[in-house]
Design a protein around this nucleic acid. Structure first.
Lengths: 179, 179
DNA sequence: GTCAGCATGTAAAAAGTTACATGATTAC
DNA sequence: GTAATCATGTAACTTTTTACATGCTGAC
């Protein structure tokens, strides 16, 4: 029940439709949580039965109607309770690491290509985060208290992307490939 | 079908029982892939039907018998084929990031405690990795070709742990907490 | 005598992925 | 006319998690 909490945070910041939530998961929280729209719609339905969120239809001009979800008081309580639960270790799943480990048994060129691709992905994501950072937090030392959490998450995302990028470079160098 | 490949790599390096595989997932590959013993036993059963692995019982003195699994030729082909597939983006799920984002809506002290705990976890894991590195790869510049993949994965694990540790410190500092 | 480690599983429930399905508008 | 964006879902399937279940040995 962890996607629920990610959705609750997102809705606590601002009400949204399922579609909008899906796009937020591609962006801001994106680095630390990913969810497809199918999954989000399903979970939203359950959360509404559980009274954690409530929705109403909003008509739009020249666009389909949308169902906008808002967090309820009960949802806020649930979210606060979540912050008090112990945090377990992170769940990681790296296909790339499995492939690296498979170097002696697999196709070296294909693995190198995967690393190059991953490097490009990290570079692109990092550039996106840095643009966000420059725009929304021009002075990191003076982030207002209510935005501190969001800033720290973005900062963590940048750290992780930079780290991933450097790792890719290390790998390419060790494999004697120029990037 | 990704746990399968992680298991194939592990068995390609050395045959093992389900129990031993589960422990390897706690250690070496641990940083990049995690699996419970229940899951491993189930997947091993399927993999044996699929002829990717084969097993035989090994009697032991003063310990329960164990079923040792070995990779088959077909399993090696499957593993090689896997290294040729395109690598998608990493799947990440960070409860801690969700909690940070929930700072304005949750319990600050509890969140800080989670960050402290995470910092301690990173420090402990990093120490373990560094011990492995010192022991198995005393000279990183001279790692033999067949161990290069394993070394790069370990190096990636150390990078990630250091990165996580620094992030925790950044968070604690921003929240005005001393570690 | 109790706890940790070795060893292997089943069953049920929850979570997540993939494929399918529809339909309007706007930009090229 | 074709593709992208907005917008919402269902169905089938796979994967993962959690709880339950057992039993021996060796160390303290």
């Amino acid at each position: 029940m962890a996607l629920e909490h990610a959705i609750l945070v997102s809705l606590a910041e601002r009400s949204a439709s399922g579609y909008e939530l899906a796009r937020r998961f591609d962006a801001s929280i994106g680095h630390f949580w990913r969810a497809s729209h199918q999954q989000i719609y399903k979970v939203l339905g359950r959360m509404e039965s559980d009274k954690l969120v409530e929705s109403h239809l909003v008509a739009q001009e020249s666009r389909p109607d949308k169902r906008v979800y808002a967090i309820t008081a009960e949802g806020r309580e649930e979210l606060a309770a979540f912050t008090r639960t112990p945090t377990g270790p992170e769940v990681l799943r790296s296909d790339l690491a499995v492939k690296l480990r498979a170097l002696p048994f697999g196709d070296r060129d294909a693995i190198v290509a995967s690393v190059r691709q991953r490097r490009a992905d990290h570079a692109a994501t990092l550039a996106g985060y840095e643009a966000s950072a420059a725009r929304f937090y021009p002075d990191p030392a003076a982030v207002p208290a209510e935005q501190l959490g969001a800033w720290l998450v973005l900062s963590g995302g940048m750290r992780a992307e930079r780290g991933g990028l450097e790792w890719c470079d290390e790998i390419l160098q060790a494999l004697g490939e120029r990037r």
